[in-house]
Nucleic acid binder design. Structure first.
Ligand SMILES: [Mn+2]
Ligand SMILES: [Mn+2]
Ligand SMILES: [Mn+2]
Ligand SMILES: [Mn+2]
Lengths: 218, 218
DNA sequence: ATAAATTATTAGACTAATCTAAATATTTAT
DNA sequence: ATAAATATTTAGATTAGTCTAATAATTTAT
């Protein structure tokens, strides 16, 4: 059994180590809103418990056991987010903080029943894949809008940035999951993208930054 | 904002102080599975925070603010239990421990939405009333089976003991909420009760102890 | 009314998780 | 290759919650 704190560290290491690259102390401190010294303390502890491989001054990676726990926390987080949106009618910008608490409820049986209750959803409200009970994850073929050419289209399937203001902004522009967009123009001087949503007449313009954070499938 | 531990103390004081009687240190220690010394420490802290009125060597009662929090924790506990049974199909003997964790999820909005999602249930799976969002509680006119006379009948509406073994025992005898029982005989020598369930031919016998812990409405 | 038993509080210590400040290692720039 | 900047770790404190052992207050029994 892990404490909430340990689970949060494991989850964060997992998310930062895209493809098993070692994660640094400062990266963790920044995301976990704590100090580097505290991170070092916790890394020693998790290393003791064989949940991570940690080398001083070098970085940290998850062991198989640690990774399993991390994926399970991610599973719980995303299933609860799905529940909050689909069953309790919260909006996609409202659910993250609640899921941060709910992800630490320990019962495996509870999460599996929740999964069944919702008919085994594959993606959470932000388009992130939900690991199944064995930790298997489906990967979308995502591409940010910023990588589309003029006249290319795609279906919005995920976001790279989860902050409520960004999600609310997308909602205002009708840039929500499932909607189809088509790139009309890419402005030369700042790479901002002009596009249409769901074949509408209406052209909208988004910054290069925003375009990088909206993911589409084709 | 309170910690989990503080919430558990407040909830326990609330439950032990039926009708505002002061609660003792040892009572709390027993139920909270801790030591009297730890209880004293926490009582000082809760008193500082004005959530309880505490007099050394005398006992403790809740302030209005403390009571409000306690009732809210009870509300969350019972709503989650209802959710687990009605939506996720857990049995009534399986849900308490999960609800012990879920009751500490802080969002008020979440609990209110959950309440709405389930259409404002009045009683939890054990027959205990669920306080509404303003802290109002409906009280059943409960009576234990042990107080019924021969030939009297009633509908099972609650239990006084929540341990899984007891609940499983009741289930085995079909003594579940909503079922009607009729007292056939009360044995003189040990006050055990012979009764029928839902007009069945089948007579079952339960101890005096069990009869005290099953509550009926007439 | 005194002694004995019970109940409750205090004193002092421990663990988990955190912090600041100081020291050390590594990386980058000159 | 050395100095400067950055990143990381260690040392030492702090807070919440808990514990055991010792002390004090209250209640019960004689
Ligand atoms: Mn989230
Ligand atoms: Mn998400
Ligand atoms: Mn319960
Ligand atoms: Mn209950």
């Amino acid at each position: 059994m892990q404490t909430f704190t340990e689970e949060n560290y494991l989850k964060t290491i997992y998310k930062l180590s895209e493809g098993s690259a070692p994660v640094s102390t400062n990266q963790l401190a920044a995301i976990l809103n704590t100090k580097a010294a505290s991170v070092t303390d916790m890394l020693k502890k998790l290393s003791e418990k064989k949940l991570i491989d940690y080398t001083r001054y070098y970085g940290v990676t998850l062991t198989e056991v640690g990774k399993k726990i991390a994926v399970d926390v991610v599973r719980r987080h995303r299933l609860w987010e799905y529940f909050l949106v689909e069953k309790l009618n919260f909006k996609w910008d409202e659910v993250h903080d609640m899921a941060e608490e709910l992800e630490h409820i320990s019962s495996t049986e509870l999460v599996d029943r929740l999964d069944q209750f919702m008919d085994y959803p594959a993606y959470d409200p932000h388009g992130d894949p939900i690991p199944d009970k064995h930790g298997r994850i489906k990967h979308h073929e995502f591409k940010p809008i910023s990588q589309l050419d003029v006249d290319e289209s795609g279906v919005i399937s995920g976001v790279r940035e989860h902050s409520p203001p960004f999600l609310q902004y997308l909602e205002k522009l009708n840039l929500m999951l499932g909607n189809q967009i088509r790139v009309i123009e890419i402005l030369a001087y700042d790479q901002s993208v002009v596009l249409t949503v769901n074949q509408s007449e209406n052209k909208i313009s988004i910054s290069k930054e925003a375009a990088k954070n909206i993911l589409v499938t084709s």
